[in-house]
């Protein structure tokens, strides 16, 4: 028989909701984020079904919203900017989510193992991580993308390869602090295999830290991916992403006279990142009892 519901310690989710109630920024961010995500992930396939977003009909100059009768106008190739915004946002979010998720998987594997065992194994793994982290991340990603070509697969692979170290370190620190807890020693005394201890007992306790950090990293990765695309190292012409749409801002004529080509993706990126950041901060407070507002 378990305790009655009201007496059980609050789950992560409940704590999060409580935090939201007390932090209006986070509440606003969370609501806006949910609306945006729903719109993007439902809207994009719908739009793709009814229109061909990449259909080109070139004109000398981009057509304004007023002249073309659409919400956000057309670019110089005649593509509807409002529709492209959905598709590009979805592509960006897919990529970023995949990158963050994979780098977390790798980071958990390495970090938790390293933290649990401690001692020489920990030392060795951490030194390997340190060496790997010395490599200049952006340069290497660009170089490898040029060598191996720019497809979604290579993009995700190389991005992951150079960013997992931070996750590993964080989770290793959390695992180290958990390792000293009594329940771990108790399990070991009982003879539970190490693998079972890690997966069934330690990992669930790391979830709150991991989730908070996951969300914050997501925001950062959106920015980096957009930056790479803006510089021209994105995913090529057929794969619109928010950074590619913003490339037009580098042209002085577009910057001055044709705001609808570059401003909407810019605003969307900023809004997305801010919302994700607010939510992430709230989650971080949930993870660390000392910081909670409740």
């Amino acid at each position: 028989m378990g305790k009655p519901a009201s007496k059980r310690p609050p789950t992560l989710f409940r704590l999060f909701l409580r935090e939201l109630r007390h932090d209006y920024f986070a509440l606003f961010g969370a609501v806006l984020l949910i609306i945006l995500l729903l719109a993007i992930f439902i809207g994009a396939p719908l739009i793709n079904h009814f229109h061909d977003v990449m259909w080109v009909n070139p004109t000398p100059l981009p057509t304004s919203p007023a002249d073309s009768g659409t919400i956000l106008g057309l670019d110089a190739l005649g593509r509807n900017q409002f529709h492209m915004l959905f598709v590009a946002a979805r592509n960006t979010l897919y990529l970023t989510f995949a990158i963050t998720f994979l780098s977390y998987v790798l980071g958990i594997l390495v970090g938790v193992v390293s933290g649990f065992y401690g001692g020489r194994i920990d030392n060795f793994i951490m030194r390997v991580c340190d060496t790997w982290a010395m490599v200049p991340f952006l340069m290497m990603v660009i170089v490898f993308l040029i060598i191996f070509g720019r497809t979604p697969l290579t993009f995700i692979t190389f991005f992951t390869l150079f960013t997992w170290v931070g996750r590993a370190r964080l989770l290793r620190a959390a695992a180290l602090s958990q390792r000293q807890m009594d329940y771990i020693s108790a399990s070991k005394t009982l003879g539970t295999p190490n693998f079972t201890i890690i997966v069934r007992e330690m990992l669930p306790n790391l979830v709150d830290v991991a989730v908070a950090n996951f969300v914050l990293t997501l925001a950062a990765n959106v920015g980096i991916e957009t930056g790479l695309s803006l510089l021209g190292f994105g995913l090529g012409w057929d794969f619109p992403s928010l950074g590619v749409m913003m490339q037009n801002a580098t042209n002085p004529m577009f910057l001055q006279h044709f705001w609808w080509v570059w401003a909407p993706p810019l605003v969307l990126v900023v809004v997305l990142m801010l919302c994700v950041n607010f939510v992430g901060n709230a989650l971080q407070r949930v993870a660390d009892p000392k910081q909670r507002l409740v």
């Binding site: 990449m54 259909w55 080109v56 070139p58 110089a76 190739l77 070509g149 720019r150 497809t151 995913l235 090529g236 012409w237 057929d238 794969f239």
Partner: peptide, 25 residues
Amino acid sequence: EVMVPLNIQNWGLIGLRVEMFEGDF
């Protein structure tokens, strides 16, 4: 920037699949 997407599109309309070299310029 105008010619390549337009060509790929038009050649697609006559049934020829044309792709960009490594996906980009």
